[in-house]
Design a protein around this nucleic acid. Structure first.
Lengths: 146, 146
DNA sequence: ACGTAATAAGTATTTACAATACCACTTATC
DNA sequence: GATAAGTGGTATTGTAAATACTTATTACGT
């Protein structure tokens, strides 16, 4: 049972951004914190922007900012967005799956139920509950003045 | 959010075997039903055997048989076994993970809780609840007599 | 009873594929 | 012109699966 790294990093980014909801965070800054390539994180941010969780702005002073308030974003909603199109098991995916007992299978319904329970549990928390205050962040490497 | 194919096929195999709990199923037979290579399924069966869910016997007339009764095997237990060592997110895996906020992170606990909710929901069902009667199986290719 | 053939699990190695991540480059905004 | 998001392509890694081979056990013919 595994979430994609997209979801993992997406949650971390939002957790970080929730600590200062009106500030714009550049992908460069966050990527540096996560020790991840900036372009890779950019793609994750795009998904978050598509989902309406953040707004992005180019250019100087730009970056990504939380769109709604941290209290109004449930963890379940974030996971639903980022895990969209990620089937729990193969037969959840397409109508053209290899399972030849679709329709008679009583396992599928149980798995769906469990998945729903997972998300429902996450819905009990919002970004506000997990915001990571900046004071608790590890010290960034001090930029050496030239 | 995804289960490994190991878990997927393992559940399918058990579901199938639960329909006739005392019969020995050969990996060849089940692999054929699932359109999967026999050796691959063998590895899955080995894991199920290690976990005590089935017993295997070599040689003619051998195969895998459900060890306990279907009623006493909860779906949660099967998933726990087959997904063992499969971290929900990276930071669940090793102490040497890349996340530098371990300890202060409040996300982790929420994810653990959700994972537990997932398994708890599965625990509400047993193999007996999902057994697929043989009469409902698709017709196997008729063996041509020589 | 014994030896042999057939059945079936177990093991090792390799291959294919998708997820992950990086790099080079482009576009927009201050 | 400097900053920062966005895009396309490519390498890498890890999972999934197949192939080829080995070992164990039963059944059956003599």
């Amino acid at each position: 049972m595994r979430l994609t790294s997209f979801t993992d990093f997406g949650l971390r980014a939002l957790m970080r951004m929730a600590s200062d909801p009106h500030r714009a965070f550049s992908t460069a800054e966050l990527a540096d914190e996560f020790a991840l390539s900036r372009n890779h994180l950019t793609k994750i941010m795009q998904r978050l922007a598509e989902g309406g969780f953040v707004t992005t702005r180019r250019g100087s002073g730009g970056g990504a900012t939380l769109a709604p308030s941290p209290e109004s974003i449930s963890l379940g909603d974030v996971v639903r967005l980022l895990e969209a199109g990620q089937p729990l098991v193969e037969c959840f995916a397409t109508r053209e799956n290899s399972c030849n007992i679709t329709g008679r299978c009583r396992l599928k319904a149980r798995l769906r139920s469990a998945e729903a329970a997972f998300l429902a549990d996450l819905d009990r928390s919002t970004l506000a509950d997990i915001a990571l205050p900046i004071s608790q962040m590890p010290q960034p490497a001090t930029p050496v003045p030239a």
